[in-house]
Design a protein around this nucleic acid. Structure first.
Length: 401
DNA sequence: ATGTAC
């Protein structure tokens, strides 16, 4: 009997290669179940997938960007007071003007002090360990060539971004306000991860232990990986907070903000099920057993705030992490350069705008490069996995370091 | 997705 489940429908197109990748990983030793979410697409290993194992951990299934995720912050800026051109002009100057270790730590503490505690800040680790954990990345940070530089607080490339959004529709007012949302306020969504730190952790695990063969869960190698993995999860969450702080500072908006939702879609977590210890490897898959989740579409489509259902065993306790790539990166430019110039591509159909100095990336991350988020969400609804709380509309997407 | 090499 197949150990594969794919959460999809006829309307939700999936590329064959991704399904083949899912089949391939489903046959790895110790894999109990391989789940394809509706945003399943090919990567080094399948993206939009949850792989459940027993007794074995596969670092390569989580990939290099351990801890990558989506954090949504509520800003102090009211929707009615937003002046887009002014914000664009401010943000175009960049967000990083602190590049020294000591200053960086001060800045991080400032960023954290500026966030009202809803009990979310210390979710993964105690904040007292902040400096210790952050500086446990020293081998990586010190290896960065620029003097005293740090990658902490930087967005990175690829599909990473920071984006101002406004509430489009609220479908569940009670949950919306219970989570702390206020539709009058502008939201800030940050998608970033552990930068080179996670990469170093993956490289080390593969170099030392041939991670393609997996790490026996009782081995010291597995314990070492999991410990570093946890640090990367924490580091990535702080990274998103610091990015939010820097964006708001650059915009001249009150940097006091509230992080309402944050979840990582690249991680491994341990879950006890039927007296068995399961390792849930998520690669481009958000957890559906840890509260509300933000699922963005693209800069030209809506972002969804959803509440997972109580029992999501069928999807490996996971949800789609976005719309899923439809068009290969290398194909985007040629396919879209008749439709857009390098200037017109900075405008979206919602009258949103993009700040991005990388011309290729503007095309690679164009809305047309992604599937329809509404169809992806519909598949999650069809399988009874979520309830939609609200949708948000992108206003300004920032895609530089 | 990454830092680095080209």
């Amino acid at each position: 009997m197949s150990n594969i489940t794919i959460i999809s429908s006829d309307k939700n197109w999936l590329v064959h290669a991704a399904v083949e990748q899912l089949k391939s990983v489903s046959k790895l030793p110790g894999v109990v179940k391989a789940i394809g979410l509706p945003d399943l697409h090919p990567g080094k290993t399948p993206v939009g997938a949850a792989i459940i194992t027993e007794n074995i951990i596969y670092p390569h299934l989580i990939g290099n960007d351990i801890g990558c995720g989506m954090a949504m912050f509520m800003t102090d800026l009211e929707k009615r007071k937003l002046k887009l051109e002014r914000l664009i002009s401010k943000l175009s100057k960049g967000i990083n003007n602190v590049n020294f270790d000591e200053m960086l730590l001060k800045e991080i503490n400032q960023a954290r002090n500026n966030q009202n505690s809803l009990g979310l800040m210390n979710k993964s680790k105690n904040s007292e360990n902040l400096e210790e954990v952050l500086l446990q990345a020293p081998e990586y940070e010190k290896s960065i060539s620029s003097p005293l530089g740090s990658s902490l607080g930087t967005i990175g490339g690829g599909n990473h971004f920071a984006e101002l959004q406004e509430t489009e529709s609220v479908f569940d007012e009670e949950t919306f306000s219970h989570l702390g949302f206020d539709k009058k306020q502008i939201m800030l969504l940050v998608h970033s991860g552990s930068r080179g730190y996670g990469q170093t952790i993956l490289d080390e695990s593969i170099k030392l232990y041939e991670a393609q063969n997996g790490l026996q869960s009782t081995s010291s190698a597995a314990k070492e990986y999991l410990s570093k993995h946890d640090n990367a999860i924490f580091w990535a969450a702080i990274n998103r907070e610091l990015i939010a702080y820097r964006i708001l500072r650059a915009l001249g908006i009150n940097t006091h903000t509230i992080k309402l939702v944050d979840s990582s879609h690249n991680s491994v977590s341990i879950k006890e099920c039927d007296n068995k210890l399961l390792y849930i490897h998520r690669k481009g898959a958000s957890p559906s057993d840890a509260g509300a989740v933000v699922i963005p579409g693209s800069r030209g489509s809506l972002t969804y705030l959803v509440m997972p259902s109580d029992n999501t065993c069928i999807s490996g306790y996971s949800l789609a992490h976005g719309a899923g790539r439809k068009c290969e990166r290398s194909m985007c430019k040629s396919r879209l350069e008749n439709k857009y110039t390098k200037e017109t591509i900075k405008y979206t159909k919602f009258k949103g705008r993009v700040i991005c100095n990388d011309n290729n990336l503007l095309f690679e991350e164009a809305p047309e490069a992604y599937k329809n988020i509404d169809t992806v969400i519909q598949s999650l609804l069809d399988f009874g996995l979520i309830k939609v709380i609200a949708t948000f509309k992108p206003i300004l997407t920032y895609k530089n370091n």
